[in-house]
Design a protein around this nucleic acid. Structure first.
Lengths: 152, 152
DNA sequence: GCAAACTATTTCCAAATACAACTAATTTAC
DNA sequence: GTAAATTAGTTGTATTTGGAAATAGTTTGC
């Protein structure tokens, strides 16, 4: 058995996977119990809300939230049905569409935000100092860069 | 908009989600391209391999890898079909079953291990020193504890 | 010792997923 | 200027999923 990576790195990877699942499951189940949007939808709406003009091209949105394109198509279908998002054609490129958050979408995200932030505060903020958070961000952004390259 | 958690913590959470997805997608797609087991299966087989007697009760396994029970039932069905796992009844409790890795399962995991460790080495080991890894493990294990409690 | 409450696992069902094939528009090359 | 290659997005299909109901076995209370 080749030990390319150290025990310490193995352990870090494991705690990373586990803490991620536990945290997102917790957030998701609280949202569900409160009858609110799922965490996935929360991500979509937040991303759109942060974007210039509250809109993003389908492919850019998919890339940002790391969704498959077909997955995003159908996610946006569902969000359009409930009125949280609308599609608008791109003026530049007639193949392209923007997904745009509506005011209802913003409101729904905003309501859910309380639960999400509360949950993160309990689990994350208590465990990590500001400096820890800062350091981890820097490290993990490195990891992101490497992972993107490694993906070819 | 309530700012329960700081910008730094927000950023840490975001980089955390992103680095996780990018890394697991990378590992999974390399495994797929090499015609090997998926990362999920890798987790199952590793967990069983590490366990006493290469076996674990269905519910314990589900809890360890954070799978739903129905999901695990079907995962083990599939693994049994390809001969990587067998089910054995619990001698103590006639409701209970053990999932047991077979030698073929161990071999398949072992082969995949090269790709997984190689991928992690590129992305993870390069970005994190041993001390970083150590520190992160400690912090994230705290997060795990808190998330378990917070889940109720 | 037996009914009620509980636990382990599976099955049912309705969603959600990913990949590949498809349609339509744009860019490139000559 | 047009055929070939590329890109944006959607649809088709087969697989996977998670929750709730169902099944079978165990423990508790009296």
């Amino acid at each position: 058995m080749p030990h390319v990576i150290s025990q310490k790195h193995q352990r870090a990877w494991r705690s990373f996977l586990t803490s991620q699942s536990l945290t997102t499951n917790m957030l998701d189940s609280r949202l569900r119990k409160a009858g609110q949007i799922s965490l996935d939808i929360y991500e979509v709406l937040s991303t759109l809300e942060d974007a210039e003009g509250h809109r993003l091209r389908m492919s850019d949105l998919a890339e940002t939230i790391l969704f498959s394109r077909s997955g995003l198509t159908r996610m946006i279908d569902r969000l359009e049905e409930v009125g949280y998002v609308v599609r608008e054609p791109s003026p530049d490129d007639r193949r392209g569409w923007f997904a745009v958050v509506t005011p209802e979408g913003i409101k729904a995200r905003h309501t859910a935000c309380e639960i999400v932030q509360q949950g993160l505060a309990e689990v994350w903020v208590e465990a990590l100092s500001e400096e820890d958070a800062d350091k981890i961000s820097a490290l993990l952004e490195q990891v992101c860069g490497r992972a993107k390259n490694a993906a070819k």
